[in-house]
Simulated assay, not measured.
Amino acid sequence: MTILDWLQDYTIQNVVIGAALLGLISGVLGSFAVLRKQSLLGDTLSHAALPGVCIGFLIAGTRNIGSILFGALVSGALAALLMLALTRNSRLKTDAGLGITLSTFFALGVVLLTYIQGTNNAAQGGLDSFLFGQAAATLRSDLWIMGGITVAALGLVSLLWKEFKLVSFDPSYAASLGLPVVWLEVLLTVMIALAVVVGLQMVGVVLMAAMIIAPAVAARQWSHRLEGMVLLAAAIGVGGGVFGALLSALSRGLATGPLIILSVSSVVIVSLLFAPGRGFVWEIVRLRRSRRRLRYQQVLTTLYQLAAAHADSRYRSGQGMIDTYHGTSTQRALRKLHRRGYVVRHAAPPEEPNTAGQWVLTPAGIHEAERILDSLGREAL
C-alpha cells in the first residue's frame, strides 16, 4: 500500500479526524479544569459516563452511537451536578466530592454493563469497548456527531470567554461583578462532560481523564497567559491525537486510544523537563547558577570585610586563609571575580613560596562588595 492509498483509507481517515476533534476539545476545555484546580474532574466525568452508555444501549436496544453518547452526556452532567451539590452544600472538600461521585457512578456502570452482558441481546457485542475505546469502529456518522459537539463547545467558550476567564482565576471577584458564578461553573463542568462524550469512542472511559488534563498541563509549562495556554493546549491535543492515530495505523495491532494518550503524555514529560522557567532541567540550571553567584558574592564580601578589619583597602588576603574561612576551595569563585575585574592576584611572598598567592580588591570590587552588603542590609530591614 502506497502512502496515498494509506491516507485515503476510510478507517484511517475516520480515526485521524476523530483524534483531532478529541484533541481540540480536550485541550481547550481541559485548560479551564486545570486552572480551576479540578484535574480530577475529567477522571470523575469520564467514569461517570459509563452508566449513561449502558442506559443509552438499554433504551435503544442496539449499539446506536447517538443514543449511547446522549446517555453518556446526561450521566456525566448528572455526576457534575451531584459533585457541585456535594461540595457546595456540605462540608466535603472538592476532592472528596469528586471521589464519591466517581466511585458511585462507575460502580453503577459496571453493574449495568454486567447485567447487559448477562442478557441474550446479540447487539451487546463491543459495548465493553467503551471502557478502553475502539477507534477503528468510528464511522463517518460518528464524526458528524463528534464534530457538532466540538463546534458547540468551542462556540460557547468563544461567546463566554471573559466570563469563564474570570470564574477560573477569581470566582469571588466575578461574583462581586454580578456574574452568575454557580451557573458558569455548572456550564463549564457540563462542557467538560461534552469533551468526555467526544472521547468515549476514541480512548474510552478509563483513559479519557488523561486526555482532558495532559494537553493543558503541558501547555501550562510554556505559557503565562490563558489565551496562549488554551491555543497551545489545543495544538498539543490535536498533534498528539493525530500522531497517536497515525502510529496505530502504521503499527497494525496496537490500540489507538493508549497510543494517543502516550503521545500526549510524552509532550507533558518533555514540557515538565525542558519548559523555560518552569521545567525541571531549567530549575536545576537556575539553582546551580544561583549557588555559584552566591558563592562568589560571599567570597567578595569576605575580602571586603577582611580589608575593613585591617583598615587597609589594599589588604592582601591569602588563598589558604580564604579557603579556611569558607571551609572549601574558593579558587573558582576567585577566578570569576578576577575575570570581572573585582580582584587582582599577587604572587606568594618569598617567605611563603608554597602558598597559593594573595588576593586584593580593586576599586570596582570594593564598590560591588559595598553594593551587595547594602542590599543585604535593606533586606534585613
Rank of each mutant, 00 (worst) to 15 (best):
G253V: 07
S290M: 11
I284R: 08
Y296R: 15
A255L: 11
Q298G: 11
I261D: 06
S266T: 15
P276F: 12
F243C: 09
S263I: 03
L254T: 13
L247I: 08
P276T: 02
G253T: 03
G253E: 14
L300N: 01
S251K: 11
G257H: 07
L294G: 07
L287K: 13
R293H: 10
A245K: 13
G253P: 12
R289L: 07
E283F: 11
V267N: 06
V270Q: 05
R295I: 04
L246T: 01
S266L: 15
L250T: 06
L272H: 03
A255R: 09
A255E: 06
S290C: 01
L254D: 07
R278V: 00
V285A: 09
V267F: 14
I269P: 07
V242E: 02
L254G: 07
L300F: 04
L287Q: 12
R291H: 13
S290G: 09
R295N: 10
A249W: 10
S251Q: 10
V299I: 13
L287C: 02
R292H: 14
V281M: 03
W282T: 00
L300M: 03
A249T: 02
A275Q: 09
G279L: 06
T301E: 05
I261H: 01
G257M: 04
S248V: 00
F280N: 04
F274I: 00
S266A: 15
A255P: 09
R252N: 14
R252I: 04
L272S: 06
Q297E: 13
S263L: 00
